[in-house]
Design a protein around this nucleic acid. Structure first.
Lengths: 325, 325
DNA sequence: TTTGATATGTTAATCGTTTGATATATTAGT
DNA sequence: ACTAATATATCAAACGATTAACATATCAAA
């Protein structure tokens, strides 16, 4: 592969000048620029990002660690992160933990080795121990580990409130919230709190359940949902804390002969792509996934450039009414 | 961040010896190994992959270019690719084209700049022009561009055959295939061919339709499907070339008051995660996505190590009968 | 005692680029 | 003619590793 030396030889310019052209430093005439451009084309020169990063001791790789890719919330999120990253001239390195804490630690190591210039962390327990010797900024999404430079979450409590309000308004009187994972503290726990508040305000019978962790890691909740409906046959409303779970509620309901929304109303969470593709399409709490992704990327980059202070942003959510309520 | 020099200073060993420990070259005593390991821990040393790759002039980054992440087939595929990649000690760099040819070219450039050691290409037209000056092996999935070192596809024709057989067996007499994109030649076109063969063999009325390209790029086919069902009210079976399209067929059918599978039977393609989450769950053609991903990664790595010849593998498909037929 | 395996050290080149210091031209404005 | 801005060159150090060449030292077996 052609190097800067080849470009220098081809143009008759010095390496320094050629480098100056690429980096827009110092004085360069148009003529020189053209010569360099021609040589680049001719030689099919691609600057070596490895060497460049090494020399500048700062890469343009952003790392992302997430628990899942196939989960529609995360695939949407990743999709937007990729877009925002690439638009800004950075490249994206992706790691998937499947919820395993051990592998998360390894992936943070990998990010260090690859000298990422920043990390977006969507995985990990609510309070992981500080990310040690933090050489690059870390932006956390829906998590808030100690070492993070910045955290982004949506207004989970408000989401829970909206879901409960919708179910109650539509006539539900015995409702169940499926949110949070047993034994893991996470921002999403706030959803149940908001949900509970509204139920109490209206004097509606409710129950807040959490999933066994292995469900989260495997994304198959049908058996769990089936048991819940089996044990509580009079349930007339369910708030599921992700669209993927809500879609499984729809399935289980159909298999039991329950009509949605007549017999059972369902509200999901995330408003990921899948929400529009279920039958009936899912009423859900909209998270501004694109905005979250873009904020994460832009915050990361500005943190990298001028080490700003750490902080936290809470994004608004809203109810999207479709066919399940 | 600590460097090999720091480790050398800390242990009192020379840089050469330390490097030898990391790379398992030459003779090293257990005592030395232990000393190095202790220093690595103490200093929280992470070898600089940039420097290492530069020096070895070979990185351990695998690039992936795909048209979508949110599309369940690709999110599943990416998920398996990530896994296989990481297990083998490589890191993954991800690029998403959204089906734009122009951005694909840019992403191949980015892969060059980042000196990926191999590329998995799931995007791009059927016959893109040769990937020029191919310094790294390229494995293509469901595509077969000229410059590829290796191509993997599933038995699309057999998939089409299985889908048609299932629909006909279940009593459909007026069936429609939705497969392929107008004006793009792709392996998936074979699906229609297999489909057509079986329909002719059984003397069943059929029609093969293709989508306008912008649908593929945006993943929203409902209007298109609606028009098709509007214009062909007597259709009793649909073969959709992806589960995501099939899920939209289910939606449109429901909105028209058509019962599935009683009035309309549907067969999807891919058997991605979404197929189990639709209501009713989707009968679909199973692609061995995990095997495809693993084959892609392992082929890429072996191509990288010992430049083997180029080739092509066709993976078997099978029918998974669920609730829509 | 010699030999050979084992274990480590030193040194210097190399990977491809950035960057600062220093030095020259050329050109235009005063 | 002097000055300042513009444009380029040369050189060398640095980024953090790998690696080959060569030198040494220890120790055990032949």
């Amino acid at each position: 592969m052609a190097t800067i030396k080849d470009v220098s030889r081809e143009t008759g310019l010095s390496i320094g000048t050629v480098s100056r052209v690429f980096n827009n430093r110092g004085y360069i005439s148009q003529e020189t620029r053209d010569k360099v451009e021609a040589a680049v084309r001719k030689l099919d020169y691609h600057p070596n990002a490895l060497a460049r990063s090494l020399s500048k001791s700062s890469s343009s790789i952003i790392g992302v660690i997430l628990p899942h890719i196939a989960h529609p919330f995360f695939s949407d999120l990743l999709s937007f992160i990729e877009n925002a990253t690439r638009e800004r001239g950075y490249s994206l390195m992706v790691f998937v933990t499947k919820g395993e804490e051990e592998s998360e630690r390894k992936m943070i190591s990998r990010c260090r080795e690859n000298r990422v210039c920043g990390l977006i962390l969507c995985s990990g327990r609510f309070s992981t121990k500080k990310i040690e010797g933090n050489e690059f900024p870390v932006v956390a999404i829906e998590r808030n580990p100690e070492g993070a430079s910045f955290a982004i979450e949506c207004d989970n409590r408000q989401g829970g409130r909206l879901a409960a309000q919708e179910l109650i308004e539509r006539g539900c009187r015995r409702i169940v919230s499926l949110a949070g994972i047993q034994g893991r503290k996470m921002p999403a726990d706030e959803r149940s709190i908001g949900f509970e508040e509204v139920c109490r305000e209206h004097g509606v019978a409710f129950e807040c359940l959490t999933y066994p962790p292995e469900r989260y890691d495997r994304l198959d909740y049908t058996a769990f949902i089936d048991r819940i409906l089996e044990e509580r046959p009079d349930t007339d409303g369910i708030f599921a804390s992700s669209d993927i779970i809500a879609s499984q509620v729809l399935q289980v309901a159909a298999s039991k002969g329950l009509r949605v929304p007549e017999d059972l109303k369902v509200v999901g969470f995330d408003d990921s792509l899948i929400a529009s593709y279920t039958t009936p399409p899912l009423t859900t709490i909209h998270q501004p996934i694109r905005e979250i992704a873009e904020l994460a990327v832009s915050t990361l980059i500005s943190l990298k450039e001028k080490k700003s202070a750490s902080g936290c942003t809470i994004m608004n959510v809203s109810l999207v009414r479709r066919g399940t309520t």
